[in-house]
Amino acid sequence: MAILLMGHPNVGKSAVFNRLTGANITESNYPGTTVDFTEGYTYIDGKEYKVIDVPGTFSTDPKDEAEKVALDILAEHEDPIVLVVIDSTKIERGLYLAFEIMERGYKVMIALNMWDDAEKHDLSIDVDQLEEILGVPVVPTVAISGKGISTLVENVPTASRVDIERLREKITSL
């Protein structure tokens, strides 16, 4: 089983990857640090998962070589779990990518990373409600300090596909 870490550039995918796999790949505070993918392994409930740190991508409509790498990886894996990593202070556009991936029928879960930044900006996100609306696990994390990572790991088996038709109805009726 594969877990693909996807998200915009510079949201902390590599930091989440290092936390999940115990690896030592480069984390930097600027977009475009990861231009090629990195693989690692992690065990959850005795089951082995391959974890892949995918280069940052804004949408599933590629714009440069690093984004093309991202989409190739998505296409290559059979029925992966896509862990969409979102910068909590820029939640809308993170959700845009998450929606695109859900529409493609992948199993999805969401990490609201940089949660500490959101707190600093007095931004409050109702995680339970968000989870309820989307129907996929949503976990606040601070990857560089490791906060929320264990909850993230516990939720991996519950990552799920989303019926877009029903999601649309649910949102419209809010």
Binding site: Y96, E100, H121, L123, S124, R168
Partner: peptide, 18 residues
Amino acid sequence: RWRLIDRVARETVEYGAE
């Protein structure tokens, strides 16, 4: 897609003063 996301964000996100 943006319309739905806007709706979700309005329901779940509250912005404090910068």
